[in-house]
Design a protein around this nucleic acid. Structure first.
Length: 1096
RNA sequence: AGUCUUGUAGCUCAUAUGGUAAGAGCACUACACUGAUAAUGUAGAGGUACGUGGUUCAAUUCCACGCAAGACUACCA
């Protein structure tokens, strides 16, 4: 047996063993099913240690429920579309998004993406295997497969049929020079925020409806509006005001102006030039209308509000900046857009050939019909390449000259496009949305969400519900390339729409198109081949789909809406799409066998991600929840508490870690280290500690029982058979009781998915109870020669404890537990076939557990007393006196448990005495019970406390007798619940006393000659043992002890007296006295040990 | 920038919590123990409970502000 623990080798062995015996992802067949949905991680690179936490949790749940006889359904998945992959490929090919479809075809680009996915997938699968979460028979889902996409299409069609899908525009960061929208991810790249100087202008808007309290004022009232983007002024449709701050109506150079109270100070240097007429809160002028500033374009003719003052419900206005009133141009600002949606504000577009277009074109220029020569000019002069820059802002300022009160220059940070280095603008881009704000849909989503159980975390539940309460319509399309294509075709005038819900439908529609001559070939010809449907032969990505032209009822050509779907829509569809529903497995979902899931678990960052999208899609499609229990997990951070990311360079190579420490160690660490909902600071040092402490101890227990049971030729099956004949002793009963207590707790915590608690309980049991106490105390029972009941009971107890603890630990650390299990318990093929052991209440003995707790406590105390006087444990002492109290009353009458103490602390006798006998060694003190006295006497508490501290012993004994305290000065009487009495130590010469409250122990430290001799013999034996071990004698080797005669004569009497004892302990056949001092060689003789006596 | 969370020994973390002696483990030091031994025991050292202010007889705990870390939403007039 290898005495060195190598966790990675054990993993390899067990993995191969399972593979050979078809135990990979083993499932018990049962009607009782437990469904786990796996949140697909985005496959945008190599897996990191921070990716595996949720999969380990799910694997533990899978293994635990399998032990509990559930059939666990768990299918792994990967999210394979999206921006990060595109960006990676762009970087690799050294191209920009604007190059796709130009210098590189979409087909080629998507091919690169696919290739990247395939390459990474193998890597990820290998990795997932390495941490113990196995994939069987290649059953996993990836979102870029045709089957998956088909299910997603079906979902889109359902949503469309429910009339929840609509097309609108969304304002996004946009780089006109690159010609693409910019993602927030790209916007957050380093060096994209640059300081620029812009105009900060204050403009007068004419008020149209005067509020009643301005009635006295006959003149026109103006609103002072602040903006830093004059070019957006032609698109203005509303003004924003804060309802709860003060505004003033002032008179300035015959103008009547409304501005915020705070702004007056810094806008009007000379305050004597203005006259304050009114002070009022912003809410008073909400909904007042004003005249359009630049009447170049009309807002869309719809029911929405226009040119009106609205309330700042999104907290956009900062009181200390500007005039407290800002202008809203919904088409060209992020906040503007959001507030306009919320407040139902119209926006300005220009009608051109039946289409509506924003007044800035996609190159960043005003459209040609903009007057004053502004048409065709860039809205930002930094877009010009040549030096002759035309500033639209300057020109508009010129046009508005009379209406501008103040012009300043203003420096601020502004986001730039990371490719072109030019500033971005916010720009309306057409997009498809799912209507989630519709009343019945929102209510449904909210009501269903209340059925979800958030494990151990109400905080995150509240966050989730809060998010749902403020739900917005979901923008599901992106103008990207590598993604699930939106399956919608439309005619050029947008009048007819066709949503495709399956490949078959598309296949048939294409055939119609071919008949009309719009298409030549059906790209999915190979799909149906003699009734055999072959999904591998088709590609459902943008490059293929964009070329498909369909037709409406009237035979008009229809083109695809060229968007791809938000990747969150992909992963949120996994409820259905992982089973290719409804094209397959429809019974499993319709009959609620695989749906909803019992358990999901991902990082807390998924509240707005997967947790949200799963819930939304399931609510809409099935009017049901998608998951019953969620365990939100903390994130894995680096050792300094920072997020792991490639750019920071603080990621860890998981393969290396697994190779070094084994998957068990990493699994245990992640579970053990911190509660699941807290972030984990991942520190390799701690891995080492856990390996040394926990795994070595577990392995040592195994080695111990393995070695000795082989010597004795005992095995578990034999002992189990004769179980009824075996009588267990006190310590056995204690550890069995502890074990069953533990099992009860573990079962309880498994049900609420608290694995941290479980691992910590197991750790204490193995290290503290089983190893450091049970085995320590029982060692000689295994070691002795006779094969009596005592020995058998010790073996059986240890076998039982180890077996049950292995099974219970197996879900968390499957490899080492299986390894030990197979070595020790040869009755079954695998630990996997066991049922989870339940704690048996009958075997729990609270009295024994309590007494053992006292024993351990006393042992500690006595050892520390010895330490105070520096008396070695090897030196026997005569006696201990323990003061009897209500806690040790029972123990004092038991004989066997007290033997444990005697042996552990090497003392001959324990006596229990009454406290009265030693009162002279004890200092009494009175302590207030503050929680009772505090509220009663309030400020007097301090004085009472001082009074009590100054009492002498006599007075205290009086109080103990009286059972009350009367304080004359304060006229206060305290009853015996208001205070308690403490015992403290007075030291003594020969006896050492430990006093802490009721626990009082006295150690007699007088060493007689007899005790001294016994101590010497112990030393002698220990030294012989030390030599045995050092010289690599086997445990069972018999020896001869050689003593030098001259030295021997000094200790002759002692050795003679303890002759038998020495021989027994050291396995010596004989003690031989020799007349010469031998040379060192004799040490190496296999049977002889020379001992040089130079002690005494 | 806003919202939320967290801050306890050198490290990783508990319990309880408005109540007067704040707990483990690791690491460190000393001594001991040891045929499971890269283990174990005892002791020592280590804390103004992130800082400041407030409420209270009493604050690590409640409140406010600030600092640091993390998450989300955003980066705008």
């Amino acid at each position: 047996m290898n005495n060195k623990l190598e966790l990675y080798k054990i993993y390899k062995k067990i993995f191969n063993y399972w593979k050979k015996n078809y135990l990979i992802n083993f499932k018990k067949k049962n009607k009782k099913k437990f469904i786990i949905y796996d949140g697909p991680p985005s496959m945008n690179g190599n897996p990191g240690i921070h990716h595996i936490f949720s999969r380990i949790i799910k694997d533990i749940v899978y293994r635990f429920y399998t032990l509990n006889n559930y059939e666990v359904i768990n299918k792994l998945g990967w999210d394979t579309h999206g921006l990060p992959i595109e960006l990676y490929i762009e970087k690799k090919l050294k191209i920009n998004k604007s190059d796709i479809g130009k210098s590189i075809s979409i087909k080629k680009f998507n091919k690169y993406c696919k290739k990247f996915i395939n390459k990474n997938l193998n890597f990820w699968i290998k990795f997932t295997n390495k941490i113990g979460y196995f994939i069987k028979d290649n059953k996993y889902y990836i979102t870029c497969n045709s089957k998956y996409i088909e299910s997603v299409w079906w979902i889109i069609k359902q949503i469309f049929n429910k009339k929840l899908l609509y097309k609108d525009y969304k304002v996004l960061p946009y780089s006109p020079i690159a010609g693409t929208s910019i993602s927030y991810q790209e916007l957050n790249l380093p060096n994209t925020k640059k300081k620029i100087t812009i105009y900060s202008i204050y403009i007068l808007f004419k008020l149209k409806t005067k509020p009643y309290f301005f009635n006295k004022i006959k003149n026109t009232i103006h609103i002072l509006v602040w903006t830093t983007t004059p070019w957006t002024l032609p698109s203005n449709t509303a003004l924003l005001i804060k309802d709860n701050i003060y505004y003033l109506l002032i008179k300035y150079n015959n103008l009547y102006i409304i501005t915020s109270k705070k702004s007056v100070k810094f806008l009007f240097n000379k305050l004597n030039t203005i006259k304050i007429l009114y002070k009022f809160k912003g809410e008073k002028i909400i909904n007042c209308e004003y005249y359009q500033l630049l009447k170049w374009f009309k807002p869309l003719n719809n029911n929405k509000k226009k040119f009106i003052i609205i309330k700042d419900t999104l907290n956009i206005i900062k009181e200390n900046k500007g005039s407290g009133i800002i202008h809203i141009a919904p088409t060209f600002g992020k906040d503007d857009y959001e507030i306009s949606i919320k407040e139902n504000i119209s926006s300005i577009f220009y009608k051109y050939k039946k289409k509506i277009i924003p007044i800035v074109d996609k190159y960043g220029k005003y459209i040609k019909v903009v007057p004053y020569g502004l048409g065709g000019k860039y809205v930002k002069n930094s877009y010009y390449n040549n030096k002759n820059k035309f500033s639209v802002d300057k020109k508009i300022i010129k046009i508005l000259k009379n209406k501008i009160l103040i012009i300043k220059k203003y420096k601020h940070k502004y986001p730039h496009c990371w490719r072109t280095n030019k500033p971005i603008i916010y720009y309306p881009i057409e997009s498809w949305f799912i209507n989630l704000t519709k009343k019945n849909i929102k209510n449904r989503i909210l009501n269903l969400s209340k059925k979800i159980n958030w494990i151990t975390n109400t905080l995150i539940k509240n966050k989730f519900i809060d998010w749902l309460n403020n739900i917005k319509d979901w923008n599901i399309t992106r103008t990207r390339y590598w993604g699930t294509p939106l399956p919608i075709w439309s005619t050029k005038d947008n009048k007819s729409l066709l949503v495709i819900g399956s490949i078959k439908e598309l296949y048939n529609e294409i055939n119609k198109s071919i008949k009309l001559g719009y298409m030549k070939k059906n790209p999915f010809k190979k799909w149906i081949n003699k009734n055999f449907i072959n999904y591998n032969k088709i590609n459902l990505h943008k490059d293929i789909l964009d070329k498909i032209i369909l037709s409406n009822k009237n035979g008009k050509k229809m083109y695809r809406e060229s968007y791809v779907l938000d990747v969150w829509f992909d992963s949120g569809s996994s409820t259905y799409a992982q089973y290719h529903y409804p094209f397959k497995n429809s019974n499993l979902i319709d009959n609620k066998i695989y749906y909803p899931s019992n358990f999901i678990s991902e990082g807390t960052d998924q509240i707005r991600g997967w947790f949200f999208t799963l819930h939304i899609i399931s609510s809409i499609i099935s009017n049901n929840i998608s998951y019953k229990n969620v365990l939100p997990l903390g994130l894995i951070l680096d050792k300094n508490g920072h997020k792991m990311s490639k750019s920071k360079g603080n990621t860890l190579n998981p393969f290396k870690l697994i190779y070094e420490y084994g998957p068990d160690c990493i699994r245990w660490y992640l579970i053990f280290n911190n509660n699941h909902n807290k972030n984990i600071k991942f520190n390799i040092k701690d891995l080492k500690k856990i390996k040394n402490k926990f795994f070595n101890t577990l392995y040592n227990i195994f080695i111990f029982i393995y070695n000795y049971s082989n010597i004795d030729k005992y095995n578990y099956n034999y002992l189990k058979k004769i179980k009824n004949k075996i009588v267990f002793n006190y310590i056995d009963k204690w550890i069995i009781s502890k074990l069953n207590n533990l099992l009860l707790k573990i079962n309880k915590y498994f049900k609420i998915f608290n694995f941290t608690k479980i691992s910590r309980l197991i750790n204490i049991f193995i290290v503290k109870d089983l190893s450091n106490w049970y085995i320590r105390l029982s060692r000689n029972r295994f070691w002795k020669n006779t094969k009596d009941n005592d020995k058998k009971s010790a073996y059986l107890t240890l076998f039982i404890c180890l077996k049950k603890i292995l099974i219970v630990s197996y879900p968390i650390i499957p490899f080492i537990t299986e390894y030990i299990y197979l070595k020790l318990y040869k009755d079954k093929i695998s630990i996997i076939y066991n049922n989870i052991p339940k704690g048996i209440c009958k075997l729990i003995n609270r009295k024994i557990e309590y007494n053992m707790y006292i024993i351990r406590k006393y042992t500690k105390i006595i050892l520390s007393l010895r330490k105070r006087k520096n008396i070695k444990v090897r030196q026997p002492l005569s006696s201990i006196y323990i003061v009897i109290n209500k806690y040790n009353k029972e123990l004092s009458k038991l004989i066997k448990p007290l033997e444990i103490i005697k042996k552990e602390v090497n003392v001959k006798k324990i006596s229990f005495i009454n406290i009265k006998n030693i009162n002279k060694y004890i200092l009494k003190k009175i302590k207030l019970n503050y929680s009772i006295v505090g509220p009663k006497y309030k400020s007097l508490v301090n004085k009472i406390s001082i009074y009590l501290n100054n009492l002498n012993q006599k007075e205290i004994y009086k109080i103990i007798k009286n059972k009350y305290i009367y304080i004359k000065q304060l006229n206060i009487k305290l009853n015996n619940k208001d205070y308690y009495i403490l015992n403290q130590n007075i030291n003594n010469k020969d006896n050492l006393i430990y006093i802490k409250n009721n626990t009082i122990i006295i150690l007699n430290t007088i060493i007689t000659d007899k005790l001294k001799n016994e101590g010497w013999i112990r030393d002698f034996i220990r030294n012989i043992q030390f030599i045995r071990k050092n010289k690599n004698f086997k445990i069972t080797d018999k020896i001869y002890i050689l003593l030098y005669k001259k030295s021997y004569l000094i200790v002759k009497n002692i050795i003679k007296k303890y002759n038998y004892f020495i021989k027994n302990e050291t396995l010596a056949k004989k003690i031989i006295i020799i007349n010469y001092k031998p040379n060192n060689n004799i040490y190496y003789n296999s049977k002889f040990i020379y001992y040089d006596i130079n002690l005494i």
